[in-house]
Design a protein around this nucleic acid. Sequence first.
DNA 1: GCAAAAGTGTTGACGATACACCCATGG
DNA 2: CCATGGGTGTATCGTCAACACTTTTGC
Lengths: 251, 251
Amino acid sequence: MSTENIKTGPEQSIGGIPQLSLDCVIFGFHDSSLKVLLLKWKDIGEWSLPGGYIKQTESVDDAAIRVLKERTALDKIFLRQFYTFGKVKRYDNELIKKKLAHLVSDHIWLDRVVSVGYYALVDYEKVFPTPDRFTESCDWVDLDDVPELLFDHNEILTKALKALRLELSFQPIGLNLLPDKFTMPDMLRMYEAILDKKIDPRNFQKKILKTGIVIRLPEVKKGVAHKSPYLYKFDKKRYTEVLEEGGLFFV
Amino acid sequence: MSTENIKTGPEQSIGGIPQLSLDCVIFGFHDSSLKVLLLKWKDIGEWSLPGGYIKQTESVDDAAIRVLKERTALDKIFLRQFYTFGKVKRYDNELIKKKLAHLVSDHIWLDRVVSVGYYALVDYEKVFPTPDRFTESCDWVDLDDVPELLFDHNEILTKALKALRLELSFQPIGLNLLPDKFTMPDMLRMYEAILDKKIDPRNFQKKILKTGIVIRLPEVKKGVAHKSPYLYKFDKKRYTEVLEEGGLFFV
DNA sequence: GCAAAAGTGTTGACGATACACCCATGG
DNA sequence: CCATGGGTGTATCGTCAACACTTTTGC
């Protein structure tokens, strides 16, 4: 069940597909670690993933785009559907009913709901996190600090991360998680954060440069302590080619 | 929309989740090529994938297992959910309404339906293809001979094949598509069929044997023309280990 | 000047590919 | 006996992993 699937009056039941929702795992990269965008529910202080219902007149993909836009104020987001959660009892309905009684009416929890899971990759710096009417804040949370979430959202998050790792070699991850200009150590640390393991910087640079997916800019990053690193940008055409030719492996 | 989602009376609307269905792409391997199990609809002679609706009391996975069992008479099928098809207009409703008017009533086609796609891998020899009440036959069709299908089932099939190829390195494909005892050329041709490219038999054998996922049996396949090939079986424990350790690549 | 991070090349091992001939069997 | 597919080894190339020191900068 997702935040926005909650119907407070009959008007919303008409607009949406019954018993179907979607949930979004929004990944960002900052400060050498992977972050997820979470919503903190009013009064109870517990967290969940952003989600929503699907209107009769929009595709499930479009619904996900709408939700993403509402929470991040971003257009043109990299979005991938990764799994549909279809268990009969996805979480403890009674517990949720109690926890959220002050916000939503009981009848919501009568029917089981199937939820389509999406993950999104966004440029951390461009996002304006925006809560909805059930939540008091919308914040980036470090992957290592994610608390117990409402509904079955820990499970969804885990599965999203697995999907991200599996597709890492074939999707333009860097292009979507990194800012337009970035340094080689930035990119290295992004891979390290996603794969949760150390990578040799010399081998990494060699490999990346050989593929030709990045272009070194004639500038360095200033204002940082220590030696100034070079800035790079992606060669989008070449990046796409490499991914199609068979991927970019860091096993 | 799927075969079994069709409601012919009000009693069925009660049992299922409205506007949600599932479709199954059942792969088998025989005669050096990949096959799909298709249903031929009564009178019109056109084909579709097997599918079904989801009961309120069963998970989507269980619904897929039920459908699979009905069409193949097999228990314990290897099954993977690969994508959920959520477009508003997945196919030409008017055309379908006309084509199937003699079998199902009009009101079925009013609502858009979202469908969860599964692919299954089965041992060709163990399957007893069984049509349902809307279809006159259930048959294996060579992947290269798949005709234009009803609904958006060509698209679903294409996407299933892509998913199969992507997951080929991490899923126990051979264990599920091949019979219990098989020859090295069988396994080679299975990979060739899935990837649609030639593989060198010497290098293939070397690689497979080195991983230890198969055990050579003290017997050969008799009754075939030419030199009798050795029979192998999978070492299931070792196979699982290898897949978890990082996969079995044939790029 | 010192602490901290950036930048860079070489070597060895392993895995992947290319390649051709003999053998066994059924017809 | 012959046609067909099965079975096998070696040499080469390229790729990946391991590894340490110098440079630059802010403080």
